[in-house]
């Protein structure tokens, strides 16, 4: 009997568009930038702060830009079925957060220091949405002083001279600064997935 190969018709992903200037302020829920607790229960691990300023080419800070992050828990586990270890994920840690920049272009998150996921250095996945960004910009924040960075496949995908732009600065114990420049001098490396 002849076996017929199932033809899977593939749909084409919808076109992206800018979030525009009018993303409702109420979509940045109070507390959405605090990943250190879930339903009033403290996540495992060391609480850290990640903050920075987002600027455009001429250095103007960008107001009302939406920043979202996604990260593993303190043991490097993602709260998602595709992570083989997800059953062991910290039930007190959600892993996702959202913030919007203020008039000075500043955003801030309170979270926990992520563990290193399998085959990766510890890192935080970052997404930017803004008026005039026709597509979401995606980047990855790495931690300073981590030997594992040099072996990380995403870090290594970035040309050597630009890698340091993906490494946050530790301003004080547990306080990280990760500035983002969308274009021009010191432009943050962004990924094309």
């Amino acid at each position: 009997m002849k076996k017929r190969k199932a033809v899977r018709r593939r749909l084409i992903p919808s076109g992206e568009a800018t979030i525009g200037p009018f993303f409702p302020p109420r979509y940045v829920d109070a507390g959405a930038n605090d990943l250190s607790q879930l339903e009033d229960r403290k996540a495992d691990g060391e609480v850290i702060e990640i903050a920075g300023t987002v600027r455009q080419e001429d250095g103007t800070p960008l107001d009302n830009l939406v920043v979202e992050i996604w990260q593993a828990d303190a043991n490097g586990i993602y709260r998602h079925v595709a992570d083989p270890r997800h059953r062991e994920a910290d039930t007190k840690f959600f892993g996702w957060g959202r913030a919007a920049t203020d008039k000075e272009g500043r955003y801030a998150f309170r979270t926990i220091r992520p563990g290193a996921p399998e085959g990766r250095a510890r890192h935080v996945n970052v997404m930017l949405m803004f008026s005039g960004l026709m597509r979401i910009l995606k980047t990855t924040m790495f931690f300073p002083g981590e030997q594992a960075n040099e072996a990380d496949p995403v870090y290594r995908a970035v040309p050597k001279a630009r890698r340091k732009l993906l490494v946050a600065r530790e301003e004080a114990l547990g306080r990280y600064r990760f500035d983002l420049k969308l274009r021009g001098a010191h432009e943050t490396p962004f990924f094309d997935d």
Binding site: Q56, E57, D58, T60, L62, W70, A72, Y78, R79, H80, V81, A82, D83, F94, G95, W96, P117, E118, G119, R120, H123, N125, F130, S131, G132, L133, M134, L137, T140, P153, V154, A157, V158, P159, R162, L182, R183, G184, E187, T188, P189, F190, F191, D192, D193
Partner: peptide, 26 residues
């Protein structure tokens, strides 16, 4: 007019998808 100020000048970088990109908030 805003788009030339805000979108990267450098080529975007292709990266191998890892668990970080193939998981996400549910």
């Amino acid at each position: 007019p805003q788009t030339p100020w805000r979108n990267p000048k450098q080529p975007l970088i292709r990266r191998p998808p890892t668990l970080s990109e193939l998981t996400g908030p549910s």
